[in-house]
Design a protein around this nucleic acid. Structure first.
Lengths: 330, 330
DNA sequence: AAAATTATTGCAAACGATTGCGAAAATGTT
DNA sequence: AACATTTTCGCAATCGTTTGCAATAATTTT
């Protein structure tokens, strides 16, 4: 079952390779008569153009690369899932490269993207990537780069991310609306810019509304730490009446603690989180959360990428507004 | 910053293209002297071979395709994550294609793999794919296919999957060991072969040990159904003392019901599941489960793929044994 | 009917790398 | 010194497609 090529079709039809090639892509130079002849035979023989030859000739592929710290993360999962759908619709394929939150691997992956002359690359950088000059070099090769989620501070690049100020503000407003008075607020790694943004917006909001709530701010790096922390606060005499979780990891630890103590939200303690949206549905009642879904972000990132591929040269920073999803836990 | 090619290197060094090409790959025909000259210049100019040209010439790529129903699934996530790591180590890239559990999309994806002359394809078929002739056609093109997880019944193909009999048997044995007497056992879609296998092994085991437990078998298609079902059974007078969940989806529904009723495992009711391993850690105590991790499966599938790429022509059916992970919920 | 247009098709050179084979140069053997 | 052998390198075809340009055939214009 040897491969059927343009050459083979041409020989069988007594036509030249170029005529066959043009006929298949409806070139106006070719008569309708030969067009149907060629197309029929191509269909019968199940002709499929050789992607490599096309890529070599045109010097670009229909593949996008996506470099992320790890696929094992609900947010990236929804992002990728959504991105792959879009890509498929537009005839692109998606190549996944995990950096394992390691800068060296990240660079290797970037190199692969360059070597394979990807049509474009989506990147969520590792938490300690600061030098993005290597990324920008791809621009010289006309490979557009869209940063998403974890974006560099550097300005002159395309970024798509959730509006962290907005998300934290919504959470604070929800807590204020429910008149919570003693709120344990658990944030993530204080080094990360995402934490800083969310924290400042969060505190800002309580001030802005003149709230007299007792807002306890804590930070943590793991589910386990959050688990311990929540247990501690729930055991105090002047018990907290609400918990805010900045991320899914924190939410998981929090809910473990609530379960072990036999408490039930929202009656015993209110819970609200910033989340991708899957985890909150694992509990009953569902957790009230501020959505930071990867789906919408992926759609936006993809649109931006298409624009870049089409030649858009200016850079843009896009942000997605979050929404409050009521689950019944607050 | 025009691309640097073999031609350019050759011109700069006053050598022929073929010599440069051979020098770069340590061909014995080339003298050490010219080798170092060529390599040095290549390094300085940051020469990178054009993948398309190589692929065209050699007619195969270093890309594996992976076709799955959906990436939004813990099992596939761990599988992909692990597979990508292996692939990267061996210099392969991984292209993800979601079928959305839709046969038409699945076929389109398969076609893409063929068009792109992938080095090989990993497939987990949709739940209603029965005709796998299209998959086998790739074999004619010397594109090896490894089926994993959801594998076809057809025998003459490479398969890697978890040992469903073994997993269900372990779960039953754990329940027997804990002397549970009234067990609600929730299985998934009864049409799927995975359900049939697990169910038969499960029932078989209770018989084999001469257990006098009252084992209630139920099947469901969704988290929500499981949620309703568990509530119903927990409200009965002669209350169940243990619940077995065949999958993560069922476990989630089950735990929701347990939470709403304010019960705590294992004292109030024992819980055991067959799971990928992430979800069980979301609760306290962690859920005891039979592990069906995608990690190990991916390593095996990849090894098998490498063998096939290297020329192994016979087919093999590999199975992974499961292990019991004690979480404290039973 | 000759000339000018237009509609079709083919030629051939790319794209960048690989590789069998032959040529030249260097070395070794009588 | 003449020949055989080995080392080192270049020629040219090839992979399958695209595309500018030339060539031929069909049609229209004068």
């Amino acid at each position: 079952m040897a491969d059927v090529t343009l050459k083979k079709l041409a020989e069988m039809l007594n036509l030249s390779i170029s005529t066959v090639s043009r006929a298949l892509k409806n070139h106006p130079d070719i008569s309708d008569e030969t067009k149907v002849k060629v197309k029929e035979l191509a269909a019968v023989l199940d002709y499929e153009p050789n992607t490599y030859a096309i890529n070599l000739r045109t010097n670009h592929s229909r593949e996008f690369g996506i470099i992320i710290p790890s696929i094992s993360n609900d947010f990236y999962q929804s992002f990728i899932s959504s991105l792959e759908e879009e890509a498929r619709i537009y005839g692109y394929a998606l190549i996944i490269l995990q950096s394992g939150n390691n800068q060296v691997t990240e660079l290797e992956n970037l190199k692969r993207c360059k070597q394979n002359r990807m049509a474009g690359v989506f990147v969520s950088i590792t938490s300690n990537t600061s030098d993005i000059s290597n990324f920008l070099k791809l621009g010289e090769q006309h490979i557009p780069i869209i940063f998403f989620d974890k974006v560099p501070a550097f300005e002159a690049c395309n970024k798509v991310c959730v509006d962290d100020y907005n998300a934290a503000t919504l959470a604070a407003e929800a807590l204020i609306a429910k008149k919570k008075k003693h709120i344990l607020s658990i944030f993530g790694n204080p080094q990360m810019s995402i934490t800083k943004k969310r924290l400042s917006a969060y505190e800002e909001t309580f001030k802005k509304y003149g709230s007299n709530a007792n807002v306890v701010i804590q930070t943590t790096n793991s589910t386990e730490e959050a688990f311990q922390m929540v247990q501690y606060y729930l055991n105090e005499k002047d018990r907290i009446d609400a918990i805010f979780c900045m991320s899914d990891e924190i939410l998981i630890g929090t809910m473990k603690a609530i379960q072990i103590m036999g408490l039930k939200p929202p009656a015993d303690v209110g819970v609200i989180a910033i989340s991708e949206g899957i985890i909150p549905t694992f509990y009953y009642p569902h957790i009230t959360y501020i959505e930071t879904s990867g789906f919408k972000l992926a759609k936006m990132a993809f649109l931006r990428m298409l624009a870049c591929v089409a030649g858009s040269s200016y850079v843009q920073e896009l942000k997605i507004e979050s929404v409050l999803i009521e689950g019944g836990s607050l």
